[in-house]
Write a protein that binds this DNA or RNA. Sequence first.
DNA 1: CGTGTTTGACCAGCGC
DNA 2: GCGCTGGTCAAACACG
Length: 251
Amino acid sequence: MKTFQVEGLQAQLECLQRENEGLGLMLETVSRKYSMLHQAYHRQASNKRLRPEVPAASERSQVFVKTDPRDQSLKVKDGFQWRKYGQKVPKDNPSPRAYFKCFMAPGCPVKKKGNKTYVQVQRCVEDKSYVVAIYEGQHNHDFDPTAAGQSISSSCGSPATSIPFPLLDNPFRPTSTCIALDLSLSGSDLQNRRNPTAAMHDYSTSNDHGNNNRRIEDYVASLTKDPNFTLALAAAVARSIKTEHPKPSPP
DNA sequence: CGTGTTTGACCAGCGC
DNA sequence: GCGCTGGTCAAACACG
């Protein structure tokens, strides 16, 4: 029984380590791109002043979503309903770029330029298993958590994993369309809405070892069943790496 | 038959 | 002004 539990935990750990490696790679790519963009921005800024009528960068947000590389649909299941209205093959990326409009609410998919709400999806050049979704505009309605939950699943045992991942320190600062993550939000039921760290502390400080096996089993089971845990873990890892490598503050 | 997707054409912005 | 590129439109098509 205990052996089975240990093996299960080891499998969980390996799974998380693999995810951590992937996230590290992703963050490295993002950091590299950020540095390039930052340098380019400084070069531009030193040459000429930015036009004040440039659209507000805060209206854009970028999200990395891990998918099955075999899945070519480029669909982003984030709780909103998107309708594809176009596809292009950009010059800098052989993978097609798809354009989706939100049609969840009648007034949301405003076609008027400058006030549109759409998502642009394209496979990452460095890692084809990731798609990059660029959200533009703001929704005037709530999102559907059940639709998001269908695709956002645990990385273990799922053929296609979706991890909406807001780019940290993105010069195009994420907007309200970005999915906010926090470890404190982990947990699918009332009990698990506690801070997981506190729950772990409860376990480690408890003297009732007869019930501990059961408790940790329940806890692990609840975590693996909870899609928010994977999301929160990704954010926590990103935050951790970010803390270790603080970026230069943008101008 | 209704709805969603595909895809070629068109348009606008930008750099030269 | 011209050409290139990205974004959008809309007719054709596919599918349930």
